[in-house]
């Protein structure tokens, strides 16, 4: 009985190891980027976005199927797009393959088609927050007080380390649930 169970628990572990061998590099990189921050800030932010994709939960209607892509849209031109494409084109989050798009701030339709919308410093944060209001979109930004202004997650810098503020209620208003685990590592949780 003991042998039997050992046998069973032994094999998935091996399978897990081999299956994930290919993406160890990205995971390693994530960790590396997180600890060092000497690499470009864009890579760190791309890694955070990927983590957010994994730690947030969308309503079932937000996806066409279990394997349909999870779309990350970057508004305007930003180096994060290239980093995302470079690091995570083939990655999956909760079973959904990632799809990286560049979207226009003026097209509400394009914005609403995404699951995560990253709003760079240069873009109009409030306008974009407003245009995806009610749609299952997790809005991530980096402008000052982004979360307090109605965004779901906002990057902040704490010395050399990149942190983020979370507004789970704002996310919930769009139908997206942010994992409590994510909230735990957030610098602060804001919003009413």
């Amino acid at each position: 009985m003991v042998n039997h169970s050992a046998h069973h628990s032994h094999r998935p572990w091996r399978r897990l190891l081999s299956r994930w061998k290919g993406i160890f590099a990205s995971a390693f990189f994530t960790a590396f980027a997180g600890t060092a921050l000497a690499e470009s800030e864009a890579s760190v932010k791309a890694a955070y976005l990927f983590n957010f994709a994994k730690l947030a939960e969308w309503p079932a209607a937000a996806f066409d199927g279990a394997k349909s892509p999870l779309i990350i849209g970057v508004v305007g031109r930003d180096p994060i797009t290239e980093e995302l494409m470079r690091l995570f084109t083939r990655a999956t989050a909760n079973g959904h393959p990632l799809e990286i798009r560049r979207v226009s701030a003026s097209s509400a339709r394009e914005l609403r088609a995404c699951h995560i919308v990253f709003v760079p410093q240069s873009e109009d944060a409030d306008g974009i927050i407003a245009s995806v209001q009610g749609s299952p979109v997790l809005v991530v930004g980096e402008s000052e007080g982004f979360a307090r202004r109605g965004g779901a997650l906002g990057f902040v810098k704490q010395g050399e380390t990149l942190k983020f503020e979370a507004n789970p209620k704002a996310a919930a208003r769009n139908g997206v649930t942010v994992s409590s685990k994510l909230l735990r590592v957030a610098q602060s949780v804001v919003g009413k």
Partner: peptide, 14 residues
């Protein structure tokens, strides 16, 4: 499980 996110976000304090 509890430490996964902290590790993912490189948050040693947490």
């Amino acid at each position: 499980d509890n430490s996964a996110v902290a590790l993912a976000f490189d948050d040693a304090k947490t």
